[in-house]
Design a protein around this nucleic acid. Sequence first.
RNA 1: GCGCCAGUAGCUCAGCCGGAUAGAGCAGCGGCCUUCUAAGCCGCAGGUCCGGGGUUCGAGUCCCUGCUGGCGUGCCA
Length: 550
Amino acid sequence: MIRETIRRDIADVLKKLELDWSDNFSLELPSSAEHGDYSSNVALVHGKLNKRNPRDLAGEIAALLKKKRTYRKIEVAGPGFLNMTLSSRVYHRALEAMVTAKHAFGNSNSGQRQKILIEFISANPTGPLNIVSARAAAYGDTLYRIMRRAGYAPVREFYINDAGNQVDILAESIELRYRELHGEDIGEFPVEAYHGAYVAELAQQLNTVEGNKLLHIPERDRLEKMKEFALQQIHDMQIASLERFGVEFDNWVSEKALRAQGMVEEVLSFLAEAGCTYEMDDAVWFSSTKFGDEKDRVLMKTDGSFTYLVPDIAYHLSKLQRGFEILIDVLGPDHHGHVVKLMAAMRALKIEEKQLEVVFLQQVNLFLDGERVKMSKREGRIVTMNELIDDVGKDAARFFFIDRRPSTHLNFDLELARKKSSENPVYYCQYAHARIYSIQKKARREKISLKDFDTSELYRLKRSDEAALIKKMLEYPHILAGAAKYREPHRLTDYTKELAGMFHKYYQAVPIVNPKAPAMSKARLYMLNALKNLLANIFEVLGIDAPQKM
RNA sequence: GCGCCAGUAGCUCAGCCGGAUAGAGCAGCGGCCUUCUAAGCCGCAGGUCCGGGGUUCGAGUCCCUGCUGGCGUGCCA
């Protein structure tokens, strides 16, 4: 709100000065208070653009801006920075507007209703969701919530790879366990099979339903039956975990269904029409080298089946056909190679490159007692999403996953996440919310109420920490919009930590509820109520609780 | 070999797509509870922003180059 006002004012001034114009100038909160409330490099940018001396230009802009009552002081500094100090009334009015906006504070239409498909997790339906999936879940879901509020039109989607090799291996793994149950000696369990305990459990469950009946039907039918059963059970398992984590999907897309619709053959003919395929060694190849890949790729194997790439191209095509303007794929670190091929295919099909955005979430390492927790998929020793939630709770897990830039490796300290103290950033932030709640309780005891509060009383908030806190709260729309635009939810946790920190300091510095000074108490309560609502609002975006008591 | 990601305080990480004197949190040291929650606050200490060039008024941020670590580089998914 304040930022928009300042930008608009500056734009008006530039128009009056009849300059070549660009909105590519900064507006930031300076680190040092001497530089005012906001500072801008607008004169530096436009000096270059219009071949003018930036300091002179800054002076002219400042002179015109000063005519508005919004600005108490404007200084030209350094090579031509504009340092602006706003009159405190501007902040108090903005605070009032923030309270009026209630839950909608921070929302914007910066996304311009752009239709965005966020595909995340898309884990193989061959086992319980693991830690990497949990990170993807937290990231994708939070990004979705952020984008909704920033005015985009996002949709959450999970792609189920329920056709192909991996699920066949799953079925075979279950079959082995099933036969084991019936006393058969299965020998050494194959290395490539799924070793997790859940496989034996699924066989057990299947046995409860079917008994030994399956032993007496043809192998093909038996495996098919086991596959169906396992896919359904695992799907339900994954949904249940996600629900505990507060994550929902709008769509689940099945690869098998996609194949049944003939989408896959269609892709092959599209590529052939584009002249990008050829036959060699009894296989069909994609000449992806023409589109930035380092070597050509097989589309149809010698046995007549498709490689993973083909249905995946089909899937992405289907997203575009459904009218999405931007496709965001949230992938694990092991998909780099795949994306190069996918991108090549997109180029071959003349799809605009920027329509497909890939966010790579890097690996997650769990630490306990300062040591890395070793995980091995092959031996079935993986930490599941459920185990993590049992251990540290949904709130800590979500917060920790979001609190890092997506592209960095994440070292997850389990002990820290378990801690219920200020060392743990989640509690630090939630505690701020609970503390304000308890201040409000005290206010009720002292019969200090905001019912007839006159906002002109806000002039009493004169302290520098009060001004800083209000300023910080008013930054929220900008933070939210930035998090959406750059697909970086961690900006929100960073901001929340700062906000909570400022509050805890303020709390320590001044008594809020003071029966001897009711007018001052009310002004402060008004501000803190706004802060409490803002915190609750952010927590909702982050998918964590806003406790009233801790 | 090639591609992607990372390299910022002892540790974990920010740094608002080029701005002013590089910031937090942990860990360390020293203080603060008769009070609205000490699940908190204050102070001290801590830096070759991996190295080297370049671009410009200005570089942790952009370009080139080298080094280190992770991942990828299947007719697996």
